[in-house]
């Protein structure tokens, strides 16, 4: 019995210790952000800066893929869904059915980089080459003027927004009616980092991911749609000359309010945009980060 009393005393002290006296005007609360693996590092950095400014708001950022974020927005298990693709009409319909009204906010831009091993002699490809590679029409690097090695295509899992984007733009060449799929031999990896690992170890691999994940361990290809080849860099994504450029989104349920709005305003502020630039993405405005 004595021990029981002691335990209860200790527990109540612990619980009491958690309560802190907070200025009532300070924003407090808990924000759950889920979704895009492409954006997870950038959003994590934004949230760390945000928590420095508003120490009583706790922000949790989880990845898993844009599909995961959108699904949990529909299931009402997150406040903000980060997505590297637009919501599909079917998803919006499903959300509306559950009383969720998704509101879309563009937070940054990204180029989907196509990467190969640094030993691969090829440094540029057209969209139609990529289409043939990822649908399995071209199976050997020699057909493109490279070494005689069979091509290993790497993709993200089906929950990834980058997967959906790449399927729309490359596998289906932007044709909404197309039913083309990735070649079934394509490896589906669980994260962009896994693609980096495999490409840096494997001379015959080709993969894709958000430009924030490019580094000197892999080689990002120059891509052309019509005639000119452009590398996936800040300038070409901003000018939209790089053919695989896309916006990155936040989705909220209805108009953002309270701390959700606070967070989104912070993300769109120069300080927030700077984090996107630092993690390798392209901020919304050219001059927004240069002023700092």
């Amino acid at each position: 019995m004595k021990h029981g009393c002691l335990i209860i005393l200790a527990l109540s002290l612990i619980i009491a210790g958690c309560k802190e006296i907070v200025d009532p005007n300070e924003p407090t609360g808990f924000l759950q952000i889920k979704g895009s693996d492409t954006m997870v590092n950038a959003v994590q950095m934004v949230s760390e800066e945000f928590m420095k400014k508003y120490p009583h708001v706790f922000v949790a950022v989880t990845g898993g893929g844009s599909g995961v974020g959108i699904a949990s927005l529909i299931n009402k298990t997150c406040n903000i869904a980060a997505a590297s693709r637009e919501m599909k009409p079917k998803e919006i319909e499903m959300a509306n059915k559950r009383g969720v009204l998704p509101k879309e906010i563009v937070v940054a831009f990204d180029g989907v980089a196509v990467v190969v091993n640094s030993k691969n002699p090829i440094d540029r490809l057209t969209i139609s080459d990529l289409h043939k590679i990822f649908t399995g029409e071209i199976k050997n690097w020699s057909e493109l003027g490279g070494k005689t090695l069979s091509i290993v295509t790497l993709s993200r899992e089906v929950s990834s927004g980058t997967y959906e984007y790449f399927k729309e733009e490359v596998v289906r060449l932007g044709d909404k009616k197309s039913k083309k799929e990735f070649s079934p031999q394509t490896l589906l990896l669980t994260s962009s980092q896994a693609i980096v690992e495999e490409v840096s170890n494997n001379e015959s691999a080709i993969g894709y991911m958000g430009m924030g994940y490019t580094s000197n361990r892999t080689k990002a290809l120059m891509v052309s749609k019509n005639s000119e080849y452009y590398p996936p860099d800040v300038e070409n994504v901003q000018k939209r000359t790089y053919p695989l450029s896309r916006p990155l989104y936040f989705y909220t349920n209805g108009e953002p309010e309270g701390i959700t709005k606070l967070f989104i305003d912070f993300t769109l502020s120069p300080k927030g945009q700077e984090q996107f630039k630092e993690t390798g993405f392209v901020p919304l405005k050219t001059d927004a980060t240069e002023k700092n």
Binding site: G64, G65, G67, V68, I70, A71, S72, I74, N75, E91, M94, E157, V158, S159, L188, T190
Partner: peptide
């Protein structure tokens, strides 16, 4: 494991 996260419950 790979796909559960992105499915909307009930689909």
């Amino acid at each position: 494991a790979g796909e559960m996260g992105e499915t909307v419950s009930g689909s």
